[in-house]
Design a protein around this nucleic acid. Structure first.
Lengths: 217, 217
DNA sequence: ATCAAAAAGGGTAGAATTGCCTTTTTATCA
DNA sequence: TGATAAAAAGGCAATTCTACCCTTTTTGAT
């Protein structure tokens, strides 16, 4: 009667979301959730223990091994498995980066169940599922040719500590005292970081470091 | 045989999460999801249209009307309804603030379904559900007596624009040019904001403004 | 209409930051 | 062990930022 169900896996660190979504999808009778995992490492462990899924629903923010890494790993080791990113972020960067990592589509958690099921069916058949959200970002990306800084800037342990201390009212002299280093050395760190982050002021440096996820608020 | 089911509502802007969770909870046979909503305003609209829920599961980050506001509204208008916060944030501030807003408990989306059901049953009977996560934060809060800045700092439209432009390499003179204002006026904004945010440097100001959610990266 | 308060505009001395150099110390390894 | 590269320390002029002054204009409330 019905064609073979689509076998999927769900990778997301929110247990409630994972389990709830599994129920929701199972009910459609077109999809079978064969396993779920709380991060990429768990996914890698569980993957060989059953028939391979056709599609993996992949969150981005996860402990241990995030969605970007996990997607790259899938594409490296099981290129036939389709990855559909499923995240709450609507910004350019995560969307473009998930696609660059190998995801064939990107859905928001704000979506409706019917849309998600449709996306899963499309991606299973066509390898790609391009909705308005994704096509808009893709266009945007081509037109503005955003470099999409994949190469994250390398900083030493001391530079990182300095960056963290920069997020404050402390003067460089005070930072030098706190790090038990000469103000001149601190000045070297500053100059090195200004160059790495292509910035010209302490504020710009802090903002860049925050944006590149090297430090957090 | 079984006692009356617990009537709950789910308020969360992630449709997939909301619907999935509803399925999951309904399956337990102890809970009935009577409605769900994507933000606080929708919740307020739907609330009078059916018997009142015993418990509302409340997300924090939502458009239009967030979890804090929605919880305060519930406690103001229907104090008998219990609110269980359900969020992905593990930090002190959101937890303490949700409790201050009137939530009787706080669960992580990373939790297991059985734990959530247990929390719902507890909060329905006892008005409060205190788990290790919450009790730890409460203790922490009392011991450190964090002021928990509830009063968010008021800034004018111009000050806000100035704050946003501050998150860059721009000098104050350049910011003045961009805003078509005298550098002296810009200096007034700076001084006023330094005082409001109790800070002594541009970097400190930007960090404070980011932390208080007045500006975003 | 009038007063008080807030916003806008102005100036300057002194402190901190920034950019561009050199020299010394430390670590590595061939 | 000597060469060499990297990290740390040092110096300094120019610019920018910060802290205190002040006056004028606009706004809001009574």
């Amino acid at each position: 009667m019905q064609t073979q169900k689509i076998a999927i896996a769900i990778v997301d660190d929110h247990t409630l979301f994972r389990q709830g979504l599994a129920h929701l999808l199972t009910e459609s009778n077109e999809i079978e959730v064969i396993f779920d995992a709380g991060d990429g490492a768990e996914m890698i462990r569980k993957l060989p223990m059953q028939p391979l899924p056709d599609v993996i629903l992949m969150d981005i923010t996860m402990p241990v091994m995030d969605g970007y890494e996990s997607t790259r790993w899938i594409k490296q080791n099981y290129p036939q498995i389709k990855v559909l990113a499923l995240s709450m972020f609507e910004e350019d960067v995560p969307i473009i980066n998930m696609l660059k990592s190998g995801a064939g589509g990107y859905m928001l958690k704000q979506a409706k169940a019917a849309d998600l099921i449709n996306a899963i069916k499309t991606i299973e058949k066509q390898t790609f599922f391009i909705n308005d959200l994704v096509s808009g970002k893709l266009l945007n990306n081509i037109q503005n040719n955003l470099p999409v800084k994949t190469a994250k800037i390398q900083v030493s342990a001391n530079e990182l500590k300095f960056l963290e201390l920069c997020c404050s009212d402390l003067t460089y002299k005070e930072i030098a005292d706190m790090m038990n280093l000469s103000p001149f050395t601190i000045n070297n760190y500053r100059e090195a970081l200004f160059e790495k982050f292509e910035t010209k002021s302490r504020t710009g440096l802090v903002i860049s470091a925050l944006k590149s996820d090297l430090i957090k608020l």
